[in-house]
Amino acid sequence: MSVRGLPKPGGDAHRVVMRSGRRHLLLGLVPVLPLLYMGLAGVYSLFLPYQHRGGSLVLIGIGVLGALLLVLFWRRRHVGVAVDARGVWVHNGQSLALIAWDSLAGVAVYESARPPSHVRSGSLELCPRVPPEQPGPVLWSLVRDDEPLAEGLGRLRYRIVLPVKGERLHRAVTAARHYIAPSQWCGESRRGPPYPGLPDPALRPDP
């Protein structure tokens, strides 16, 4: 479904919302604003006498680059993940998709810690009851072919790298465990970075 953002918070105390798009937008303003300023300076310099036109065009080109980056960050401002009673919501910046808890055969967590800070980061590993052969425009890039989470489960599953670390990662994992049945839980394990892997291009939906 195409919506502007993740579902709005309700009265669920265990619900966790992890918005990465807005944070990236704010961080992106740090390099973008100087580029835009240089572009404006280039436009202004065109009207100055005895100004070298080539230098002005270079500055304008830099400003155009800044504008393109700003558009990119703005279009992805809704990117994020939410965990609630219905399942795991994923927004890729343009559309929203839900992986419902009752559609899953197994749920696990992979964690890793990178030096020198050794702050934990991780992913939710969601194994569906039915192999995700047509996952759709949002979820196709999350499908991974890896060793089964447990005996009897399939290799294909969704790997959702959580945009949080440390204590916020622990909260997200706790929320997921609160919503799923004990029989769905496949445990936590450590993975050495990098482990996220790449999706299968054959799963990409036709435009």
Rank of each mutant, 00 (worst) to 15 (best):
R171D: 15
A67V: 07
V109R: 09
D102N: 14
C186I: 02
R129D: 11
I180F: 13
I99P: 06
S141V: 12
R177D: 10
E133C: 06
A85D: 15
E147F: 04
L126D: 05
Y158I: 00
Q94T: 06
L72F: 14
A175V: 08
E188V: 13
R168V: 09
W185G: 15
V173Y: 02
R177I: 06
N92L: 01
L149C: 06
A67L: 14
P132D: 06
V173W: 00
E125T: 01
V81A: 02
R75C: 12
P201Y: 09
L104H: 03
V161L: 05
K165R: 15
Q134G: 11
L126N: 03
V130R: 15
R129T: 11
R144M: 01
E111H: 03
L126P: 02
A113F: 00
P199C: 07
V109D: 09
G66Q: 05
G80M: 05
P132E: 06
E111D: 12
V107I: 11
R114I: 07
A105P: 03
P135W: 03
K165P: 00
C127V: 01
R191K: 14
S183I: 09
P131L: 07
D102H: 15
V79A: 08
L70S: 09
H78Q: 14
G192F: 09
H91C: 02
L72G: 12
V119Y: 05
G87K: 01
V138L: 04
E147D: 14
Y179M: 10
L72V: 08
W101S: 12
H170A: 13
S141G: 08
H178N: 13
A97Q: 04
N92A: 02
